[in-house]
Design a protein around this nucleic acid. Structure first.
Length: 586
RNA sequence: GACUGCGUAGCUCAACCGGAUAGAGCGUUGCGCUUCGAACGCAAAGGUUGGGGGUUCGAGUCCCUCCGCGGUCGCCA
């Protein structure tokens, strides 16, 4: 249950009654009416901007409107007070039983609390990672991987039908370079001395096993054949191995895609999907032969002014029209990418989310233009650009990696600190802000480490339940029993504040899902944990606030009910982020 | 030069389709804590939200402009 939505509807009814009474005009737009937590808890439990939001349409001053609405709201048994404040806010105090209902709902259905029908089952495609299959994943890939995965979880939790997809760039020049690099390792495996890896080839030793595999499979048969003959074979083998490597890296973070979509299949499949896409666009007048103005700033050395096949991207908000064919007549990467996104649309997705690295920023407009063009405006594309990750150890930048040849691999980091800190810290920052990831800090078991702080809150709740069971062996601690407790024993402001924060969970999930911003959930869990730890600490000085009290079974049960609700929200939130919720931490 | 993201406390960052007195953590300062639930607690100081202008009842948030930092800049992927 979402009390914010509940009271938003209630406020809407109050507005409708004002209209029915003739005090304001009919049909006023209430789309901007919000019920939200007040900035200052002393103002009330909930606040609404309704009077200010409709004042213009009602042609009445906000204060007067607020008084009318407040009078109506005061008649509701769920509302104990409605006060007008400031420019026209209405601050609401809700009856204790409303909050008790929230606690019971969260307690009785921990996995369902916060879920919503927001998505209405709509199909959403989240494309993330899509790292080139030329080597192991590095830390930068890891951020997009975790972000995309948490976002997919969040959307699924919010009632969307989500497909997690990986676009395998198995068609460009890079995979040919991969093939040549693997071929070198193949010759090495046959006993040849290859010396230093030449510039332009991938030096990483992760290709050594690929070379060995080729030697096992083909013996010396490929060695003296021309490149045109061995390259497709070696390339296919190497890509298969690299994708296995990447899937393994991803599984170390518990990330699994449902669809791996091959770029090569667009061109080499039964039909040339890229050609088909271009033809379809041409039929609609979106493709023409023309010249492009030279790029501003430094001119590329090999710039030649020539006529080429262009997509009218400018008609869809891009800065210039974009080429679909290279000078040798082959398709550009962009042309393939249009065909790929068109395939997503043809597969029934109206909402496309792409998670890219910051270096692809210049690509966003043209892809958005392409999606508008090929879908006729029916599909939307939201591109999330994840900023760079700076890897630190004790404040000092970490560089290089022997294994990969040039970068720190994701796997090295996961192996060192574990998947939970990697996932949580990658999400404990807005995606469009650069991220510092400190290998030393994320392993600290102290309140300064957010991962530990949140997980420890969950473990601490579990510990209270263990203690509750030990101190009174006959005590019924199952959820239905606790839900039957008299919750009116919860009176301390700290307890109420915690309950109110739990009540915000559904609203927060909804907003985070709508904005495609899973980091909000990470911050919420941190705040929630902070309230709980504070309450715990208060019990140290004030024994009457302890959760388990030998001499007061009824307040013990009420508090355990609250903690049971808290435990569910923590577990549920952490599950969306893909972080474990430990029962104990040792 | 163009496009794009960012600019919030000394530092690292939040701020929910524009809402009230811009919030946390670290650091600083002060007080507390004889393992009872301290893998610490409480409190304080700290801000012209990069500068300027505009829209609005109301702007960190939207628009314009300038400054600074990063990214990208026909056919690479």
């Amino acid at each position: 249950m979402n009390i914010f939505g509940l009271f938003e509807r209630r406020v809407g009814e109050a507005v409708a009654r004002l209209a029915a009474d003739g005090r304001i005009p009919d049909g006023i737009d209430t789309g901007r009416v919000l019920v939200e937590p007040p900035r200052d808890p002393s103002h009330g439990d909930l606040a609404t901007n309704a009077a200010m939001a409709i004042a213009k349409g009602a042609r009445t001053n906000p204060r007067a409107l607020a008084e009318w609405l407040a009078a109506d709201l005061r008649t509701d048994p769920r509302i104990t007070d409605a006060a007008v404040a400031g420019p026209g806010f209405i601050n609401l105090r809700i009856a204790p039983h409303v909050l008790h209902d929230v606690i019971r709902a969260a307690l009785l259905d921990p996995a369902g609390y916060g879920r919503s029908g927001q998505g209405g089952g709509a199909s959403v495609n989240v494309e993330y990672v899509s790292a080139n299959p030329t080597g192991p994943m590095h830390v930068g890939h890891g951020r997009g991987a975790v972000f995309g995965d948490a976002l997919a979880n969040l959307l699924a939790f919010s009632g969307f039908s989500v497909t997690r997809e990986y676009y395998v760039n198995d068609a460009g020049a890079q995979v040919d370079v991969l093939a040549r690099s693997a071929f070198l390792r193949y010759r090495e495996a046959l006993g040849e001395e290859i010396g230093a890896i030449p510039d332009g080839l991938y030096p990483g030793d992760y290709l050594v096993p690929v070379g060995r595999g080729l030697a096992d499979q083909y013996g010396a048969a490929l060695r003296d054949r021309p490149e045109t003959e061995w390259l497709p074979l070696v390339r296919a083998a190497a890509i298969t191995e690299m994708m296995a490597l990447i899937r393994d890296d991803l599984s170390s973070l518990d990330i699994r895609h449902e669809v791996f979509f091959s770029e090569r299949s667009l061109k080499d499949g039964p039909v040339d999907e890229i050609g088909r896409t271009i033809d379809a666009m041409r039929d609609r007048g979106l493709v023409y032969e023309g010249r492009l103005p030279p790029p501003k700033g430094q001119l590329p050395e090999d710039w030649e002014d020539r006529e080429q096949t262009l997509f009218r991207a400018t008609e869809f908000g891009d800065d210039v029209d974009r080429p679909l064919l290279k000078s040798d007549g082959s398709y550009t990467y962009f042309a393939a990418d249009i065909a790929y996104h068109r395939s997503k649309i043809e597969r029934g997705f109206a909402t496309l989310i792409d998670v890219w690295g910051a270096d692809h920023g210049g690509y966003v407009k043209r892809m958005g233009a392409a999606v508008s063009a090929v879908s006729g405006g029916a599909a939307t594309l939201d591109v999330k650009l994840c900023q760079l990750v700076r890897l630190l150890r004790g404040g000092e930048p970490v560089k290089m990696s022997k294994r990969s040849g040039s970068f720190v691999t994701l796997r090295e980091v996961v192996d060192e600190v574990g998947p939970d800190p990697v996932r949580f810290m990658m999400l404990f920052r807005k995606y469009d802000a650069p991220l510092d990831f400190d290998l030393a800090k994320v392993r600290e078991q102290s309140k300064d480490n957010p991962v530990f702080y949140v997980q420890y809150a969950h473990a601490r709740v579990a510990s209270v339940f263990r203690q509750a069971a030990e101190t009174a062996p006959g005590r019924a601690l199952d959820r239905p029993s606790l839900a039957a407790a008299d919750l009116s024993a919860l009176v301390d402001p700290s307890e109420i504040e915690l309950a109110l924060r739990i009540a915000q969970f559904p609203r927060l999930v909804e907003a985070a899902a709508a904005a495609h911003e899973p980091h909000r959930l990470a911050f919420y869990l941190y705040d929630l944990s902070s309230l709980f730890h504070a309450l715990w600490n208060k019990g140290k000085d004030l024994p009457q606030l302890r959760f388990v009290k030998q001499d007061d079974e009824s307040s013990t049960r009420a508090r355990l009910a609250l903690l049971g609700a808290l435990r569910g929200v923590l577990a549920s939130g952490l599950a969306i982020l893909g972080v474990s919720a430990p029962e104990e931490m040792r």
